[in-house]
Amino acid sequence: MAVRDSDRDEIRRLVENWAIWRDSGDWDRFATVWHPVDGWMSATWFQGSASDFIEVSRQGFEKGVSILHFLGGHSADVTGDRAIAQTKMTISQRATLDGIDVDVLCTGRFYDFLARQDDRWTIVRRQPIYEKDRLDVIDPAATPTIDSELLNRFPVGYRYLAYVQTKSGFDVKDGLPGLTGDAVEQLYGEGAEWLSGAESPGVPA
C-alpha cells in the first residue's frame, strides 16, 4: 500500500491533539488518540494502559499537578497500516522543592507506535526518549538544596525531572531511553520490528 501524505498529516495531528487535549484536561477527546484495546503509555512516573494513564492524569490535573508538553519537529515512517512517529518535545513541570518554586524542563522525543484501523490512526504505544534536562528556580534569589545522592541515581537525560518528581511523591522509573545507549537502541529495534509486522510493539518500559 502506497504511503499517502494524508497519513502523515493525520499522524501529525494525532500527536498534536495528544498534547493539547491532555494538557487542557479534555479527557473525552484525549481518549480518542489511543488504540481502544492495546494503548500503552510509558513515562518517568507511569507505565501502564492508556485508560489508566488517562485516569491518573485526570486525578493529577484536578489536584493541580502542572506537567505541560511543547512539540517541535516531527517525522513518521509509515508501512501499510502501521507507523512509527518521532516528535521533538519538551516536558515542563512546575513543582516546589523545600518551599522553593522551580521549573524543570526536559527535552527529548515522543516515540510512537501507531496502527490504522477502520481508516483511523491511533497510538498503540508511546515511549518518550529523554535527551537532556535542566532545573530553574522561579525566584532568582532562592537557592534550593539539592540531594546529590538522589539526583545521581537517575540517567543524565532526565535526572532533574526524576529528582523533582521523586521529591513530589512520584515513583520514577530508572533506565528509560536517552539520546544514546542500550535502552534507545532496543527501542529503535522494536520500532523496526513493528513496521515489519511484529505481533506486539515490543516490551513497554
Rank of each mutant, 00 (worst) to 15 (best):
D118A: 14
D136P: 00
P155H: 10
R159Q: 15
S148G: 00
A115Q: 14
A142N: 07
K132E: 12
L151N: 08
R120D: 10
Q117G: 13
G157S: 11
D112W: 02
D118W: 00
S148A: 14
S148W: 01
D147A: 05
F110W: 15
G157I: 01
Y130L: 09
D112P: 02
R153W: 00
D119C: 06
E149H: 03
T143S: 13
A142M: 10
W121I: 02
P155D: 12
L114Q: 11
D133C: 06
D112V: 03
Y130R: 10
G157Y: 07
D139S: 13
P128M: 02
N152R: 12
F110L: 15
L135I: 04
P155M: 08
Q127D: 09
R109I: 00
P155C: 06
I123S: 08
V124I: 12
A115T: 12
T122Y: 01
Q127T: 14
P140D: 05
F154S: 10
R134G: 13
R159H: 03
L135T: 06
D147E: 05
L135N: 08
T122I: 00
L114E: 12
S148F: 04
P140M: 04
T143Q: 14
V137C: 11
I129T: 08
P144F: 02
Q117S: 14
R126V: 14
L151S: 06
V156Y: 12
V156M: 12
G157D: 11
P155L: 03
T145H: 07
D119R: 12
Q117W: 01
R116E: 02
F110M: 13
D139K: 04
R153H: 04
R125T: 05
F154D: 06
A141C: 01
A141G: 00
I138Y: 01
Q117P: 00
V137Q: 09
I138Q: 08
Y111E: 11
N152D: 15
T145M: 05
I146W: 01
D133L: 02
N152C: 09
A141V: 09
P140S: 06
G157V: 09
E131P: 02
R134C: 09
S148N: 13
A115L: 08
D119F: 06
K132T: 13
R153D: 12
W121M: 07
D147M: 07
E149T: 12
T122S: 15
A142S: 14
V137E: 05
K132N: 13
D136W: 00
Y160C: 03
R120H: 13
Y158E: 07
I138F: 10
R109W: 13
D136R: 12
R120T: 15
L151F: 11
D139G: 08
R134K: 12
E131Q: 11
I138K: 10
E131N: 10
L150S: 05
V124T: 10
D136C: 03
R159C: 03
Q127H: 01
L150H: 01
V137T: 15
K132Y: 14
A115S: 14
